[in-house]
């Protein structure tokens, strides 16, 4: 069982160079739960995640990990507590899957320590959990997009951190594998108490899998709370600029969003926005 880690922000502003993307964000990631960050393209989801992960320096305010300002902590210490799957990591040429996953062990090693049995176990576990043990010796560049994505997830798992931050872990994955990855995260969460924060584009999967939902829009957090509270027609309209209906997911019993487009929306379209 992992330690429950407290990750929160205090009046956090984040951005790049002179541009502030997110202003005055105060949030607390529920320890030992699964949090999903949703929002439109370029709304600042990745920026938020990267700032939380100590990769971007805040423009103002701070990120606190267990009460300590994360940017004052040594990077190696943070990396033993928190793992991050970036949105677009780079696959170096000629690296095998097992090599890549093994890189996840880096924070557990000093300058002169050697690879040990615990490392092998962590790597094997990560490969097995993501279902790519059979691909261990393959070159990363010979894999399909989905297989590669699972290799990256395996690398983050091999890091064996209490906190796991993932930026769109389900991109490139087919429907079945998306569900598999999300189930895997729930497994990690239930069996080891891992706190998960992930950026997801699929609102309905976010609602189904997350305990806590954060909607990012207009340079800040539009609203946050339980998925049932956050997912309303009004929220979807402000955050995504999309008309929708909320229904009950017949499988999970959670709310689910049914989009209304300009076409193929039957009679509902006329009801919501009568044509001129």
């Amino acid at each position: 069982m992992t330690m429950a880690r407290q990750l929160r922000t205090q009046d956090l502003s984040a951005g790049y160079d002179a541009r502030v993307i997110l202003k005055d964000i105060s949030l607390e990631v529920p320890a030992g739960r699964i949090t999903a960050i949703v929002g439109g393209n370029a709304s600042g989801k990745s920026t938020l995640l990267r700032t939380l992960a100590r990769i971007l320096k805040p423009k103002g305010g701070s990120v606190l990990l267990d009460g300590n300002v994360i940017h004052d902590m040594p990077s190696n210490a943070v990396a033993r507590i928190m793992g991050l799957l970036p949105q677009s990591p780079i696959a170096p040429e000629g690296i095998t899957v097992v090599d890549l996953v093994g890189r996840g062990r880096h924070p557990h090693h000093g300058l002169f320590s050697r690879w040990n049995a615990a490392d092998d176990r962590a790597v094997t576990d990560a490969l097995t959990a993501t279902g790519i043990a059979g691909l261990a010796e393959r070159d990363l560049d010979t894999l399909s997009g989905g297989q590669r994505q699972r290799a990256w997830i395996a690398m983050t798992l091999a890091q064996q951190t209490d906190l796991l931050l993932l930026d769109e872990p389900t991109t490139f994955l087919d429907v079945a594998h998306q569900i598999d990855v999300l189930d895997l995260l729930v497994d990690m969460n239930l069996s080891r108490g891992t706190t998960v924060v992930m950026v997801l584009h699929d609102l309905n999967l976010a609602v189904r899998y997350a305990d806590h939902l954060i909607a990012v829009a207009q340079g800040g957090i539009h609203c946050q709370g339980t998925p049932a509270d956050v997912l309303t027609e009004a929220t979807v309209k402000t955050v995504f600029g999309l008309d929708c209906r909320i229904a009950i997911d017949p499988v999970s019993g959670t709310p689910t969003m049914v989009p209304i487009g300009r076409h193929k929306s039957g009679s509902v379209r006329q009801e919501t926005q009568p044509s001129k």
């Binding site: 097992v98 090599d99 790597v123 094997t124 490969l127 097995t128 279902g131 059979g134 261990a136």
Partner: peptide
């Protein structure tokens, strides 16, 4: 938990790593 299916048996990490080494 349902594992993502892979046809080959799980090759232990140590084995695969040793080949690279």
């Amino acid at each position: 938990m349902t594992l993502i299916i892979d046809t080959q048996a799980a090759a232990p990490a140590a084995h695969a790593r040793n080949r690279g080494t």
